[in-house]
């Protein structure tokens, strides 16, 4: 089982079963999880799928590319150390992911 736990800015938790290979952004859109916009559809061009990942998630989410790092300079809510673009994190079979969504994406 692959699981994503989304915590909204107000603390509301949404737990979704994900499909390996699909991104955290797309998993949110497919399941109607609020707090992620994903305006460009995952091509790293809009920075509207910004999330804060937990330490455990950071460890399994893979390295951030230089491009993602630069795109994070344009998020609606100021980036933090644990900021990622959720379109760039593809789910791995059997893992559990924890992300918090910012108060604003646009």
């Amino acid at each position: 089982m692959t699981t994503v736990i989304y915590t909204a800015h107000d603390g509301t938790e949404t737990i979704v079963e994900g499909t390996p290979g699909v991104s955290i952004m797309e998993t949110a859109l497919r399941n109607g999880v609020p707090g992620i916009v994903g305006e460009c559809g995952g091509s790293m061009s809009c920075a509207t799928c910004h999330v804060f990942v937990s330490d455990e998630t950071a460890a399994i989410a893979g390295e951030m590319s230089e491009l993602e790092d630069e795109m994070l300079d344009g998020t609606a809510v100021e980036r933090e150390e644990r900021s990622r673009l959720s379109c760039q994190i593809k789910l791995i079979e059997g893992e559990t992911y924890r992300v918090t969504t910012p108060s604003e994406q646009v």
Partner: peptide, 15 residues
């Protein structure tokens, strides 16, 4: 090619 071109169009660059 997009991955190469895209580097020029990040918020960090156009700010």
């Amino acid at each position: 090619i997009r991955a190469i071109a895209q580097r020029a169009f990040t918020p960090r660059r156009f700010k």
